[in-house]
Amino acid sequence: MSRPNWQSIRAVVARDLTAVRRSKAIMLPMTLVPVMLLVVLPAGTAFAARTQDASGVSDFLNRFPAGLTDPIVGLPQHEQLIVLVNGFLIAPLFLIVPLMVSAVLAADAFAGEKERRTLESMLHLPISDRDLFIGKTLVAFLPAVAVSWLGFVCFAVVSNTLAWPVMHRLFVPTALWAIMIFWVAPGVAALGLGVMVRVSARANTTQEANQLGAAVILPLIFLAVGQATGLLLVDVPVALAIGAVVWLVALLLIGRGIQRFTRDQLATRI
């Protein structure tokens, strides 16, 4: 198989990103959700920790097996709320960001091409099926990771700054966060993408793709939310394992997607 033609791939990525930047329907959720999760929520927690008595946190923590909550229980009581929320509970919620961004962008990149009726003229260009797939994949994956990381930087700054009067030290990122950022988040971005690649083959419009995709992705989000409310407080090895599973499923989905991503198949569904 020939080497990827990076000029063509770059052209696809650049075109789609330019177009996406001008689309309110895409930019709005892509900024709003990260801002809510990674700025508003931690800021609220920090304010709460500064003003309120946090005895409720101990009761909450006591419901868990001792081993899992050790790092928090050992802390002074006034630090517990903020470390619990900003250091641990937001971490899994944070995964909604790469998942959502990659899913929204992948729906636009794959199903949107059909919807806008630009697919046929694209297929008549000298870009190989594989390069087109790589380009479309990157269009979803790179911004998902970039937004996640940027969001995380904002989160770390907000958490540490606002919590300083309580904590008097930098407490984010924790080891758990580091795994989330560098291992699980890119995996989740790939997973959202993989789901949407498969779903977009059946959908004729972006909206249809998003609806189908949501049917697959929403349960994942509930899992993350469930985790965040303390049903499954993960520790570092568990996070590593979850990341591995996510990557595995994502790569399987993407691998299947690339096999079906042939000109003939695409042209048949124009």
Binding site: A19, R22, R116
Partner: peptide, 8 residues
């Protein structure tokens, strides 16, 4: 279909 991306 002319196949132009209207956002461009």
């Amino acid at each position: 279909q002319a196949g132009l991306d209207d956002r461009l």
